[in-house]
Simulated scan of single mutants.
Amino acid sequence: MSGARTNRRQEAMALLERLEPEAPGRVADNLDDFHPQALETLLGFAFADVVSREGIDLKTREMLTVAMLGAMGNAPGQLEFHLRAAMNTGVTREEIVEIVLQIAVYAGIPAAMNAMSAAKAAFRAREGA
């Protein structure tokens, strides 16, 4: 493994920790169990190459991610994670409600209902923290 690859992994894990402090170990175990390069390939691209760019702040990126995952409607685990991450970056419960309502307009009621379920789970997790 090259030094550049190691730094990319470390950058991705550092950003993941900013999103949810408990996540890096869990995510690394899961991805490393699948393939030794999965974390560097997937999260290196997502977090080290794209999400860490300076063009949009992390809070806004998380709001966008929640909206996109909610609109997709087929990634409930990732949506719930990014809802928690959004709150960890300063997105308020009220802003999340507005995002879910916006999902209903542009992606449909079923997608919004799924996003609402994920949001409620993320709100419960936050209240339990």
Rank of each mutant, 00 (worst) to 15 (best):
A111P: 00
E80V: 12
Q37R: 12
G108K: 04
L16Y: 04
M68P: 03
E95S: 09
A28G: 02
N114Q: 11
L16N: 05
D57W: 03
L39A: 13
H82W: 02
H35C: 09
D33R: 14
L69A: 03
V105F: 02
D57L: 04
A14R: 13
E20C: 11
L79A: 03
R126A: 12
R26E: 08
M63K: 07
L101N: 13
N114L: 09
A48K: 02
E94A: 15
A71P: 00
A118R: 11
I96E: 01
L31A: 07
M113T: 04
A28I: 01
M72S: 06
A48W: 00
M1K: 14
A119V: 02
E40R: 13
G90R: 10
E95I: 07
P21T: 10
P21D: 09
F45T: 02
L42V: 15
Q10T: 12
L58S: 11
H35I: 05
D29C: 07
L39S: 09
R126C: 04
K59Y: 02
P21V: 06
A23C: 10
I103A: 05
V50H: 01
I109N: 06
M72A: 11
V66D: 03
A14D: 13
A48Y: 01
L16R: 07
N74I: 12
V27Q: 10
G108I: 05
P110H: 07
G77E: 12
T6F: 06
E22V: 04
R5G: 09
L43D: 11
Q102P: 03
E20V: 09
R8C: 05
A104S: 14
A111S: 10
I96L: 15
L16G: 00
N88S: 11
N30A: 15
R18W: 09
V91Y: 12
E40C: 08
G3E: 15
E22A: 14
L101D: 09
M13P: 02
L83H: 02
L83M: 14
A86E: 07
G55V: 02
I99D: 04
M87R: 14
F34I: 15
V50T: 07
A111F: 00
F47P: 01
A14S: 13
A112L: 03
E20N: 14
T6Q: 15
P76M: 08
A112Y: 06
L42I: 15
Q10E: 15
E94I: 09
A107C: 05
K120I: 03
R9S: 01
R61D: 02
R26Q: 10
A4Y: 12
G55Y: 08
D49Q: 07
K59H: 03
Q78M: 10
D57E: 15
E20I: 02
A75Y: 02
Q10N: 15
R26H: 12
Y106N: 04
R61W: 04
L43T: 03
M116V: 01
P24W: 10
D49S: 05
L15W: 06
R126V: 07
E98Y: 07
V105Q: 00
E11F: 00
G90D: 06
E62W: 05
R53S: 08
Q10L: 14
S2D: 13
P21I: 04
L31E: 08
A118F: 00
I103Q: 05
A28Y: 05
R124D: 14
A85Q: 08
R126Y: 11
E94R: 11
R18L: 13
